[in-house]
Design a protein around this nucleic acid. Structure first.
Lengths: 244, 244
DNA sequence: TCTTCATCAAAGATGCTATCTATTCGTGTC
DNA sequence: GACACGAATAGATAGCATCTTTGATGAAGA
């Protein structure tokens, strides 16, 4: 409407002056790289991006700056912006994880995350047993009870939600900021596990018991037992992943 | 010298036209935030940054975009650029890790990384036993032998180098891209451990044996034993960190 | 009359565009 | 092998658009 200027409309972008052009482009290019559609070595240019997405040079510039800070691309004068080798990517960047989970390379990302989870959660449980607050310990016990109730009732949806809450609380209360940063990714893995039907239709009684054991151990400050019980929970996952 | 223009020099920045102004500013602001010098809630403005660092709006914008993608800040109209709560930072970003290790909050970052290492390395060892290439297995055995030789000779410097190589190779060959991304951070932790004198002056024979056990198990494809032996190596670290 | 609440306008900041100069570095030519 | 050309990013500047906070104004009610 009041967008006065807008010259040379050879390719008017629909959304008007499109607020959040930035995010749109980062998303689009990020997804294209993460999915492998843009293979390593591919060269982009700012001008090309401007034209393709109908954005100004500045926006193209800072988009590439963000992608560069994730190590998805590097830029050199006279050459352009070059897509990096996957082995150099910042694979812990939550955005990148999201993009990869949305791509058809989903499985690779999923198994990496699962293995990470297997590694981290036992130590997180031990950390929680050592450092969680009283409120967190109590909530953990309560969540374990919820899990049993919902699991025995067969309410898979609610069970998943409580399961996510349980594991997230553990990561949050373990006192390690890096573990806490994995909260979102763990949630993603658990959700995906249920969606793909990798979860038993009805949670195994053994798993329910193990969750209770973790909660009890954390509540009682028994680090070794918390770690052991969490290991036990994850053994089931390892089994399912063929990592046993 | 050839800095032709430079108008209105009310505050000429020393470095001339400063190539790589970008990196300089990201580094400076990133360090200031990571070190806690800029507390959460602090407001910056593009204009303030332009003035402070003698840069243009474009560069200030790019810089903030990068910091925003690490979740160190968020920016809102009419408000400015606001420093985020540390709990929201992308603490796995290698740059942020570096900044924090360089700050006086070093210890916090160090212990988080150590705990992460304790969690990841056993699973990485198991992964390597399952998935490493023949060359990698051989190299691991060879590095373990080097470790014994250098350890018994008391050459702490060379021992550290070989130790880093050993643990990095393990992470690289374990087949998990996320673990591999931790290579640099592990190297940092090991270096720091030696520098701070946390390493025994002469590596304990038990540790040397455990490294050999890991290498042998990986070479032989014995995942359970590789994991167990790596756990054993890390028990010493846990002991030292008071995590036992 | 005083207080409270809703409404509206101005200001201050970023979002985005457009355009310019400087610098670098790969490539082709001599 | 040296050198010139050109393509591309790096950086600077100016300006309009947009959003959102803040404060002022005015009306309704106690």
């Amino acid at each position: 409407m009041s967008t006065a200027t807008i010259q040379d409309g050879d390719e008017v972008h629909d959304g008007g002056p499109s607020p959040a052009a930035q995010g749109r482009v980062i998303e689009a290019v990020g997804v294209a790289i993460a999915s492998g559609e843009l293979v390593p070595g591919t060269r982009l240019t700012l001008e090309g991006l401007q034209h393709e997405y109908g954005i100004s040079r500045t926006v193209a510039r800072d988009t590439m700056k963000v992608l560069e800070s994730m190590n998805l691309v590097y830029s050199r004068r006279r050459v352009g912006i070059v897509v990096q080798e996957p082995s150099l990517w910042n694979v812990f960047d939550p955005n990148l994880v999201r993009w990869r989970l949305a791509s058809d390379r989903r499985d690779l990302q999923y198994s990496s995350l699962t293995e990470l989870r297997i590694a981290v959660e036992p130590i997180a449980a031990a950390g929680a047993a050592r450092r969680a607050s009283a409120a967190e310990r109590a909530q953990l016990v309560s969540l374990a009870a919820d899990l049993r109730r919902l699991g025995e009732a067969g309410d898979l949806q609610a069970f998943l939600a409580a399961d996510i809450a349980f594991h997230q609380l553990l990561l949050r209360s373990c006192g390690n900021e890096m573990f806490r940063a994995l909260e979102g990714m763990i949630a993603e893995v658990l959700t995906s596990r249920t969606r793909q039907g990798l979860m038993p239709f009805k949670p195994r009684s053994e798993a329910l018991q193990a969750h209770e054991a973790v909660a009890t151990a954390v509540a009682g400050g028994d680090t070794a037992e918390a770690e052991r019980a969490m290991h036990h929970i994850l053994d089931e996952v390892r089994e399912a992943m063929g990592l046993r």
